[in-house]
């Protein structure tokens, strides 16, 4: 059974058709890439899967459970984690709090525990802090743990955001342009990090990415989205040589 399955998903914003007949089968442990020009609807696909928008038509399932109509926090707890193109970090919170925040629903204490400062409350806080620190170490940002997120270098912010996504214990990780704004050096590091996540956490990944080299390197399968429709799907080599993809990216070849 597919881990994440999307069938004929279509979404309209008013009269604008943002996504049309999108299909996806993501098997456990696989990495699929979603490429396409700006405005093709890639991030909308993510927003539809994570419940930020509800698709006008179609079906989304994780491990056979239907996600349509569930609220974002429910979908998150069903095993879908994500990162954002523009990070969406909490500027005046420190690094370890970012990861603890993602463990919100794993912090098991009630209002009364907090009010009286019970042992249960302290134990839970301690347990989650330890978990958060462990994740920060995995992503090589443990040294920054008590710094404010806005004081970190950009590459480190991205890694904190990934640690945050992994803290929700996802089965499927959606990465929205993990290399946006990165230097070539940081880029190679990111390839290693994604490989590491994939291996150590046994998570399936769907990633939006602009840099073809990066996608080719990591993905087993690539989908090309243009104007909300998948125009090509296949292995990196197939996609690289597909005339329609080349046309969408570079314009029509003029053979004269």
């Amino acid at each position: 059974m597919a881990l994440l399955r999307v069938d004929n998903m279509t979404h309209y914003f008013g009269g604008l058709r943002a996504v049309h007949n999108y299909n996806l089968v993501l098997e456990p442990g696989h990495i699929t890439g979603l490429i396409g020009p700006n405005g093709a609807g890639k991030t909308t696909v993510f927003n539809l899967i994570t419940g930020i928008h509800t698709p006008t038509e179609g079906n989304v399932e994780i491990e056979g459970h239907n996600l349509i109509g569930h609220r974002p926090h429910e979908i998150a707890s069903m095993g879908i984690g994500r990162t954002f193109q523009n990070l969406l970090l909490w500027r005046h919170m420190n690094v370890v709090e970012h990861v603890k925040m993602a463990c919100y629903s794993q912090l098991e204490y009630g209002l009364l525990d907090a009010f009286f400062g019970t042992r249960r409350c302290r134990r839970e806080e301690k347990r989650i802090t330890a978990k958060a620190m462990h994740l920060l170490e995995t992503f090589n940002v443990a040294d920054y743990s008590s710094r404010l997120i806005s004081n970190l270098p950009y590459g480190a912010q991205r890694r904190v955001e990934m640690a945050r996504a992994m803290a929700t214990n996802p089965k499927v990780l959606l990465l929205d342009e993990p290399t946006a704004g990165m230097t070539p050096d940081e880029l190679n590091r990111m390839i290693d990090i994604i490989r590491k996540i994939h291996r150590d956490f046994e998570v399936a990944i769907l990633m939006i990415e602009h840099r073809l080299k990066f996608v080719m390197e990591l993905c087993e399968k690539i989908q090309t989205l243009v104007f909300g429709e998948v125009i090509a799907e296949g292995t990196p080599t197939e996609i690289q040589n597909n005339p329609e993809v080349i046309e969408a990216y570079l314009g029509k070849e003029d053979v004269t």
Binding site: T50, I52, R71, P72, H73, I75, A76, S77, G81, R82, F84, L88, L89, W90, R91, H92, M93, E97, K100, M101, A102, Y104, S105, L107, Y109, L111, A114, E125, R164, T168
Partner: peptide
């Protein structure tokens, strides 16, 4: 100090990411 307070602070900086952390 509490998880709810943490969520409230996070919401005040960016509310889009917070529900995706499992916060209702």
């Amino acid at each position: 100090k509490t998880k709810w307070g943490m969520a409230m602070r996070a919401m005040s900086y960016d509310f889009q990411a917070v529900p995706l952390m499992g916060v209702s």
